[in-house]
Design a protein around this nucleic acid. Structure first.
Lengths: 150, 150
DNA sequence: CATGTTATTGCAATCAATTGCGATTACTAA
DNA sequence: TTAGTAATCGCAATTGATTGCAATAACATG
């Protein structure tokens, strides 16, 4: 739970107020190990703080994102958030069939970034990169269901 | 304007109806050389067909997208569409500062796709890939404005 | 050319996300 | 400890995008 304390310190240092709403959202995100949908966070927050508003959840998550405390990931067409993992920073592969998210080590993108930089002088935002596609399991079941139709 | 005719033929062959709304949206997209925002298309369409509804524009663009007639690109946080360029298929680099879009040849992504395939069996959706970042011009002006502050 | 079927449209409702604004409250500084 | 003030919140309205549904119209068929 060091992350938790660090995040609070970050908030304070940058001059942001430590409101109960923020602390609740933070502890919810921190206590989950994977990424959470916005509504998931909202529902959980309402349990300990019934007045919680969905707009506050969005604003809080965006603040945390700007501070680097949480990371935004697009799963399907919804936004999800997870506590930023400074040690094991990673990207995501999201399966469009089962919506499963798989971690992707940053080194798979390093070369791509270098190329864009050298060839075009373009600095891509790849900090929180996510690519959609079809995972190996869903490829298999897709194949099987096609076989069945014959 | 061969593209235009081809697109109409595609619609007909797949059993879709040639409604005035579809023909209007198609001709608008075809007559623009870059990508257009949805509202841009909508406003233009209303001029020749005042009853045009925004929902129809969305449905039409999505149909065209599924048929491969147009390509969807996320510019900023809005959806844009352009006529699919079969010969010069390309991806996009979008600058988050000036919202400018730069074309990116597909071969820059070929290796990345191969790696994901071999390592994880993951088949990424890279047909209409767009990466945000900062273009070379905006990097320069960002640098200059920081210098000025000193 | 007339008719029936069914895709498509227009409208209104809805959804996820964002924003304007007056009320509230966390923090600062006396 | 107590005010003062600016950040933050809750609420309601708004935005971009999608969807359900009844009315309409494109197309196939006779």
């Amino acid at each position: 739970m060091i992350k938790h304390e660090q995040a609070i310190e970050t908030l304070r240092l940058k001059g942001h107020r430590l409101t109960p709403q923020r602390l609740i959202v933070l502890s919810i995100i921190a206590s989950s190990d994977g990424h959470m949908g916005v509504d998931e966070v909202f529902q959980a927050a309402k349990k300990t703080y019934p007045y919680m508003d969905i707009a506050t959840v969005y604003r809080t998550l965006h603040l945390f994102k700007d501070l680097g405390v949480v990371t935004e990931v697009a799963i399907g067409d919804r936004l999800h958030f997870e506590l930023t993992d400074l040690d094991g920073h990673h990207h995501h592969m999201v399966c469009r069939a089962c919506n499963g998210a798989f971690n992707l080590s940053p080194h798979y993108l390093a070369e791509f970034r270098d190329t864009l930089n050298k060839e075009f002088g373009f600095e891509p935002d790849l900090e929180h990169f996510a690519v959609t596609g079809i995972c190996i399991d869903c490829q298999r079941s897709e194949f099987e269901s096609k076989e069945k139709q014959k």
